[in-house]
């Protein structure tokens, strides 16, 4: 089993004709993902390596019945692209775009909640979602993930997600699904959404979460874990040595005053019974031990 996607998920790529869209769209298809169409306004009727391109998401959905969209659109058009997908009936939108203005993102996420409550947005500013051996939507290098479970992975960071997959796969510990929720202040999918889905997923038997400084999503995750989670969780929080008031690469990675610190998040997770590692390698080691003892 997997969460949010599986081997039957049909995907369109918004921005398939751009260099990034083409590169990652074709890579996703090579991985085995059912990439059925592309969308670029004005480029309808053309194709990218045999994948038909449509002018709008609506046309692409009507022609292919796609249920998911991979948004690879520059920051100025990304929020509109997300809403266009939702409006056309897409139920899963994966947006990797980094640099979307915070005001656009907040507006789009709230319009989704109000008008399209059944559409799930993953990201923006994330590596996407991969269920190893089944479906890869986004930019995660497929070869570092290992099919078969039993670990679910959820992370705010792209490269740290790769690092985590690498640590697990090297020890022959597979993953059910790996969700990159992204490093922006207003993500469409939260830690709690993913933890809840992993808790329900029969094949997932343990969860690794990778958080970072800024906001309070990890504290909310700790509350959820404490109240509702039976499966073991291992966590790592990046930015333990980050200076306050400075944005560390991600738009959402900033310690404001006393809030959003790595220590606060680690304490909350510890109190919720989560095994908190001090670096990604240790998180991998702890998880391998847990999986071997399951």
């Amino acid at each position: 089993m997997s969460i949010f996607v599986d081997e039957n998920t049909t995907v369109i790529v918004q921005g398939l004709t751009g260099s990034q869209g083409r590169f990652h769209g074709l890579r996703n298809r090579d991985y085995g993902t059912k990439v059925v169409a592309g969308v670029t306004p004005g480029k309808g009727g053309t194709d990218v390596d045999g994948i038909p391109v449509y002018d709008s998401v609506k046309e692409a959905v009507e022609a292919t019945g796609a249920v998911a969209s991979f948004v690879v659109v520059p920051p100025r058009g990304a929020a509109e692209a997300i809403l266009e997908a939702a409006g056309a009936g897409i139920s899963l939108v994966v947006c990797i775009t980094e640099g979307i203005p915070a005001q656009d993102e907040a507006r789009a996420v709230n319009i989704l909640k109000r008008d399209f409550p059944t559409t799930r947005l993953i990201g923006p500013n994330c590596p996407g979602i991969i269920s190893p051996g089944k479906c890869n939507i986004g930019i995660t290098p497929g070869n570092i993930a290992l099919p078969g479970g039993p670990v679910g992975v959820v992370s705010r960071s792209g490269t740290l997600t790769y690092q985590a997959l690498h640590e697990l796969s090297q020890q022959k510990v597979g993953q059910t699904t790996c969700v990159g929720i992204g490093g922006d202040p207003v993500p469409g999918t939260s830690f709690v959404d993913c933890l809840a889905a992993f808790e329900q997923d029969l094949e997932t038997r343990a969860v690794m979460m990778i958080g970072e400084i800024g906001g309070s999503a990890e504290e909310s995750a700790a509350e959820f874990i404490s109240a509702s989670m039976t499966k073991p969780v291992v966590a790592y929080i990046a930015g333990q040595t980050a200076p306050p008031g400075r944005r560390m690469g991600h738009a959402g990675a900033i310690v404001s005053g006393n809030s959003g610190t790595a220590q606060g998040k680690m304490d909350a997770l510890n109190a919720a019974g989560v095994r908190v590692a001090k670096n990604p390698t240790e998180a991998g080691e702890i998880m391998v031990d847990i999986v071997h003892s399951l």
Binding site: S157, G158, L160, Q163, G183, G239, M248, G249, H250
Partner: peptide, 12 residues
């Protein structure tokens, strides 16, 4: 480092 998370983690 490449990636904000990996860069933060490297400092840690």
């Amino acid at each position: 480092a490449n990636g904000a998370g990996l860069a933060m983690s490297t400092l840690d």
